[in-house]
Every structure is written in structure tokens, then in C-alpha cells.
Amino acid sequence: MKTIKFNIHKEEAKKRIIEYGKKYNFRISKWSGNLILLNESTDSFSSEEFEQTTIVFFKDNEILYTLIKEGRKTNFPVLFSQHFTKRAFTKILNQTTIEPQKSYFSAFFNEL
């Protein structure tokens, strides 16, 4: 599990993570108390449909999160997904105001 610390109220952090999930069309399958699960379909070249789940657990002033990805044994894309997720979560949990973005990938590639 990875850890990200933040300086905002825990309820505000939960709200931001849920807004992030809705913005990027994650399926928020279960969230309660201190746990949020964000599910998304993964692009796969097979006829099977796989999902990636981001598990976010809230403590006082930090989150613990990890990604679980269904699929083949060689699962290199999850390494990149963890990096992108950490970057996105860190940004939304540490900004003072929520900034609108065009989309996840356009924001990543057009950032100066």
C-alpha cells in the first residue's frame, strides 16, 4: 500500500476522492466510513473484460491506497497506473481549491 499525507479535513479528502472517481467514470462500488473502492474497466485485447480496483483507506491525515488489476500474470500497466494514481491523488488532496481539468490524459500530457 502507498501512503499520501494531506492537510485538509478527512471528510473533504473523501469528497475529493469521490469527485475524482465520478469525473473519470470510475464505478464507486462500495464506500463507507474510511473505505472507498474505485473500479474501472481495463482496456484488454482479449474477449474477456477485466477491471482495475483502487482501494483507498482513510486515516486521520493520510490515505493508504493500492491498485488491484485483474488479468494476466505479466501486469506491467499496473506499475504505471500506481504512479499516475499517486500523482492525481496527491494533487487533489493538497490543492487549496479544486481546479477543473479537461481530461486525465490531456491534463497529463499538456502540463507545463
Score class of each variant (00 low, 15 high):
F45G: 14
F109R: 13
N61D: 13
Q52T: 08
I28F: 09
G21I: 08
L64Q: 10
I28Q: 13
E51V: 06
E62D: 09
T66G: 08
K30Q: 11
Y24M: 05
I4H: 14
N110K: 12
L64N: 12
K23T: 01
T74E: 14
N61Q: 13
N75H: 07
K22N: 05
N75P: 03
N39V: 04
S41H: 11
I98L: 07
N75C: 08
E111L: 08
K73F: 02
G71K: 00
A88F: 01
K5L: 11
N110A: 06
I28D: 10
V56Q: 06
N75L: 13
N110E: 15
E51N: 11
L64F: 06
F45Y: 01
I98V: 09
Q95P: 00
T97V: 02
F26Y: 15
E70Y: 00
L35H: 11
L37F: 07
K14D: 03
K59Y: 06
R16Q: 06
T53W: 01
K30F: 11
Y20H: 05
N25P: 01
R72Y: 06
I36F: 01
V56L: 08
H83Q: 12
T3N: 09
N110Y: 09
T97D: 10
L112F: 10
A88S: 15
T54G: 00
H9T: 00
Y24K: 11
A13N: 11
E48G: 00
F80A: 14
K86R: 14
K22V: 02
S29E: 14
S46F: 03
E51W: 01
K102P: 03
P100S: 05
Y104M: 13
R27G: 00
K23H: 03
G33T: 00
L93I: 03
I4E: 01
L93Q: 03
I63Q: 00
K30L: 09
L38Q: 11
K91Y: 05
L93T: 00
F84A: 07
L35V: 08
Y104V: 03
K14V: 04
L37D: 02
T42M: 05
S32E: 06
H9M: 05
Q52A: 13
Q101I: 11
E62A: 14
E62N: 13
S32T: 04
F6D: 03
Q52D: 06
G71M: 02
N34A: 04
N7P: 05
N39H: 14
G71T: 02
R87V: 04
E49I: 01
E40W: 14
K91W: 10
K5N: 15
P77T: 06
I8A: 10
L37Q: 07
N75M: 05
K14M: 11
I4K: 14
F105L: 10
F84T: 09
E62F: 10
G21N: 07
Q82Y: 05
N61K: 15
T53I: 06
T54H: 03
S41W: 13
F58V: 01
Y104L: 14
S32K: 06
R87C: 01
Y65T: 06
V56I: 15
H9S: 04
F50P: 01
R16D: 08
L67Q: 04
K23A: 09
I17V: 15
I18V: 09
N39Y: 05
E99S: 04
P77F: 07
T66H: 04
D43E: 13
I17N: 01
K30R: 15
E40M: 15
F58D: 04
I55G: 00
